[in-house]
Design a protein around this nucleic acid. Sequence first.
RNA 1: GGAGGCGUGCCAGAGUGGUCGAUUGGAGCCAACUUAUAAUUGGUAGCGAGUGCUGAUACCACCCGCCGCAGGUUCAAAUCCUGCCGCCUCCGCCA
Length: 926
Amino acid sequence: MAEPFDVKSTLNLPQTAFAMKAKLTQKEPELLKKWKETGLYGRILRKHAADPTFVLHDGPPYANGTIHLGTAMNKILKDFIVKSRTMQGRLAPYVPGWDCHGLPIEIHVDKLLGDRKKDMSIIEIREECRAYALKYVDIQRSDFIRLGVFGEWDDPYLTMAPGYEAGVLRHLAAFFAAGNVFKGKRPVHWCPTCRTALAEAEIIYKDKTSPSIYVKFPMATDLGAKIPELRGRRASVIIWTTTPWTLPANLAIAFHPEHEYAAFESGEDVYIVAKTLVPKIAGMLGIRDPKILATILGRDLEGLKARHPWIDRDSLFVLADYVTLDDGTGCVHTAPGHGLEDYQTGRAYGLDIYAPVDDEGRFTPDVARYAGMSVFKANRLINDDMRRDGALLEEGEISHSYPHCWRCKNPVIFRATAQWFISMDEGGLRQRTLDEIRRVRWIPAWGEERMAGMMESRPDWCISRQRSWGVPIPAFACRACGEILANEATTLHVADIFAAEGSNAWFVRGAEDLLPSGTRCPKCGGTAFEKEHNILDVWFESGASHGILGHRPDLPWPADVYIEGHDQHRGWFNSSIVIGVEAKGASPYRTCITHGFILDAKGRAMSKSAGNVIEPRTIIAQNGAEILRLWTAMLNYKEDAPFGDEILQRVVEAYRKIRNTWRFLLGNLSDFNPDRDSVPASEMDGLDRWALAASAEVGAKVLRGYEEFEYHTVFHALYNFFTVDLSAFYLDILKDRMYCSGKASRLRRSGQTAMFRILKDTLRLMAPILPFTAEEAWEVMPAFRGKEQSVHLEAFPAIGGDVILGEAEKSEWRALIALRERVLKELESARERKTIGNSLEAQVTLRVPPADRPLLDKHRAGLASLFIVSAVVLADGEGEGVGIAVAKAPGGKCVRCWNYSTHVGTSVDHPNLCARCEAVVRDLGR
RNA sequence: GGAGGCGUGCCAGAGUGGUCGAUUGGAGCCAACUUAUAAUUGGUAGCGAGUGCUGAUACCACCCGCCGCAGGUUCAAAUCCUGCCGCCUCCGCCA
């Protein structure tokens, strides 16, 4: 006989507007719009106005191209930091920035302009660069906003803004004040055709045929003192080179300190080369069985000298680690003005950085015989002359990869030119920076070692570039005597002009107009000057970005945190700390965090040429930004992370689980008024108290994770809690109580109270990671006293309070949960035996040994619901452990709650209901 | 060439000296439910060698080895040390 009404209508089934299907791609833009309209970001800052500050200073991405996954991850991590610190009660403003100057933009604009560039002024070209940079600032800005990153997007810092440019020069002035800036020579790639210096990005490597020659340098020092066997012999060192034209600039020969060198006989002559290369060289000279007269370690040759093959000059024997035995003779021709390693070695030995070659690649008058001759043409002649003099031992050709100019495609040369430097050791800058590095907190810890290693080995900082798109180095030359004028005062003066007019002023104004009035040459007293045309290395510009701090009370200097990819140990972290130390005497960051790179699904770096690049826009368009954020939270960002479809699907799965759990909580709270219906913890059902205690434990772990910037532990802790504790255990058990108990019964309200508190806590704990979903849920969550309009205006929950369980209670629950697992296994085998289907068809009999009796008696009433069965019978057992038996539950199935009960069929009014349901239905007046 | 990082089951990813052959999730297989329903729940489940059982290289039981490989420290190692191999990132780039 059926009930005279629809039983289902008497149940309290879940109800919520929070959809199962997220439709993130639609929902996220709606929330962004709403946040913008309600001025959420400003409200957050105002709410925390009186709180202690926390400054994450943004490393400026380069304003060129669209963002890639790595950029997205970086911004998301920054947002985790800012949002979580905010919810921890800090005033944490976030000012994003962009790096706008520099070569890549200049090259792109160059290509865009093509031939038109010839007719344009430098100002016009710079305006094109500015427009180009602004375009990409806009594009990237909207991408970052789309990710849900909160910040001052309307007022970012741009390195090309006049105020910023002035700040850069003021930092430069600090180096002038310290006496650390000097002008020196340094080899750069130089295109003789285009008559310009080239950056690495403007070099293309192509195969080129070059001469390959072996040249002997006769000893100037008598080796007899060191090697008695060679007393009185005519000894020479043999070098190998592919650039004969650099021989006029030869000042040294480099040996490896650890390699063994040998002197072998060739008729009257004795030649010195690396011992292992003797057979090769001797064979080349036609000596069948070379006689080795003596050997000597490279380091013992240091300081000796050889004669230049034709110039009246000695060549110093120096030591260098980069000398290899793969090619040549192990004795390396060294011209400090024509090679980077040669340059470094030359500086180490105090040699002249000698490069007697002019802008067009011709020898200067300094070089006898070849003056005015193009260096490539001179190769032939030099070889001929040396052959005639007997200096050339062997001549051939070699095809090798050689740098060429990207524009004219001609081979380039390496040539020392005048450049501006910051000395790392003059004034102890390197050491002071190293000291500061020790004071910074590095995450991960190995960052310190890496950073210190780089700082120890970095050469003097070459800060000048022969380019247009950047901040000019304000240096002048006296027209009368050529004296260079650049110091703290002139730099600060130009900084003031830039602050008002921007760095274009350098190109618009005359030299005298850029100097304080009445400036005279300190050397000759002249009053006429000309401007130099160098711009600053962009790393100096971005490294000075901490200059935006310290001008607003909410943005003090130094920053609490810098966080970028680990490539920035050499880049931004490096230049920032050097500038911070010189200008402010300290590191501009207290904590420095690095993250890994994003690789493709196979673990390879993403690159356009490999065709494995995944655009964040694609992910967002298909899955929503929330998925990208969750992925970022799941991974241990300290390591490089693979990314691909399969991985993405897993993230989507995890998202669904979290979303559905929140949805279930919301669904069961539709009739719950927290302020009116909450049950005090002391009166709550035991299981609910357990759930709150578990939630508190997770909460503590999550807060620790945020504190330590460990977002994957945040995610794992919450996700585990959702799947294991809530979904598979607590909420599963709670269903019967929620659906079937009287709406306002104490038991149901107790469960609702726990669910509400868990929902409220987890939404807030998850808000920094899932700002959209947490907000969406927050909006539909029951209102309560003090509820903020947005979850992002809330603080993290205080953990603990009234729900911590004692150790005794905890171990009781551990025992019950362990017993439950065993019961579930027994139920499964009963299911396999077809004894039962649904677990509610079962009655479980526990044979309880005396030792376990107190525990089970205490929880007797809750056991059936704990196991989700219809009945539990306790019987006396023996020995160790509780025995478990499963049988078909007696009685009939209650059509309302599906529990089996002997009460079913006994009631006249409600013969299909169990006692509990009959009572509930009666209360409803049915 | 230099610096740094990483290597755990089919996959992802926990685990930093015993309670770990190893948490959790995904995929797989089996099942329940239709009251979170394009949802929820339970169970099962690594690889290799050996012994027993057997008609059987199947199932089951037992046992041994395996957390990149090889050693070492220790009463005890996925966890510490050394070497090797592999992968990745950054920097340099050759006279």
